[in-house]
């Protein structure tokens, strides 16, 4: 009885020892040499593996950044400047600060603004829907509303608003990784500078049809009238294919374009006060009158 017990213990312990040794030697034999900095870099990264940097996940970012001669091709949009400073410190490189960005949905074709012409049935995917046809409304540029962007977001920053049928970006959660911009088949989502205290001006429309066609399809559509371009004193707005676009690097947030836009497709967000349209319009009129007076005088 006793001897059996001892024998069992001895055999099991021996077996364990032999296998442990085997494992040890195998681990030694197949050990992969890795730059010790890779682990350190990876520790600073957010670890979301979102691919926003253009590499296949955080590990790939770390490996390639250690091998790269500088950090010009490496930027982690999720971690932003603080993380990049840490990475640069580890690798002994320098990085320039970049302005924080945020995803912006450029469609305001809410359920009430865009009359429906069709009903979609099938798999709930914008990609599949976009392959099939232009969309449920007469606007072929607008949001399809199946939420491919929501599914693409790894940070839970996007959600569909059931009221409007459009995606909404949670600015706090958005890391500007850019996954949603690639997921949208209509190319509606853009990464734009977050702006001082979050204040920014956006043309919330991508409709390139001529004015009347666009207006008929959607009450909130940009009709390409060009009033904003004429008003802007910072040369920040361009009109191309019947569509206005605000260059956020030039915009000075004066909100004049918002005041003059007849379609209401230019929207300023996060401003502390609501826009006093009449006051801004009066300001523009006064400036124009002064300019005309100067012109008259020079004649």
């Amino acid at each position: 009885m006793n001897s059996t017990l001892i024998l069992t213990i001895v055999i099991l312990a021996g077996l364990g020892l032999i296998l442990a040794l085997l494992l040890y030697f195998v681990a030694q034999k197949f050990k992969v040499e890795e730059d010790p900095r890779v682990g350190k870099v990876e520790e600073c990264l957010p670890g979301a593996n979102c691919g926003g940097c253009g590499f296949a996940g955080c590990h790939d970012f770390a490996v390639t950044s250690c091998a790269a001669p500088d950090l010009s091709r490496h930027y982690c949009p999720v971690g932003g400047d603080p993380v990049m400073q840490q990475v640069a410190a580890i690798l002994g490189y320098k990085v320039e600060a970049k302005a924080p960005q945020v995803a912006v949905v450029r469609c305001n074709g809410t359920c009430t603004a865009r009359p429906r012409t069709n009903t979609y049935q099938g798999v709930q995917s914008c990609k599949a829907k976009a392959w099939l046809y232009a969309g449920d409304t007469a606007c072929q540029f607008g949001c399809l509303g199946c939420g491919d962007c929501v599914a693409a977001c790894k940070f839970g920053a996007l959600s569909m608003d059931p009221q409007t049928g459009l995606p909404v970006v949670d600015q706090e959660k958005c890391t500007a990784c850019g996954a949603c911009t690639g997921a949208c088949p209509k190319n509606l989502i853009e990464l734009r500078a977050k702006g001082p205290r979050g204040m920014r001006m956006v043309v919330v429309c991508r409709n390139q049809d001529k004015g009347p066609v666009a207006k008929k399809a959607c009450a909130n559509a940009c009709i390409g009238c060009g009033l904003c371009v004429k008003t802007c004193t910072h040369d920040a707005i361009v009109l191309e294919n019947n569509l206005a676009y605000i260059d956020f690097t030039k915009c000075k947030l004066c909100r004049e374009c918002e005041a003059v836009c007849p379609a209401g497709s230019i929207i300023g967000v996060n401003f502390p006060k609501p826009l006093d349209k009449e006051a801004v319009k009066a300001r523009i009129a006064a400036r124009k009158a002064a300019a005309a007076a100067v012109k008259e005088e020079s004649k």
């Binding site: 429906r116 009903t119 979609y120 049935q121 099938g122 099939l132």
Partner: peptide, 9 residues
């Protein structure tokens, strides 16, 4: 009808 169904084949 106001709006017709659209779906893939």
């Amino acid at each position: 009808a106001e709006s017709y169904i659209v779906s893939g084949n």
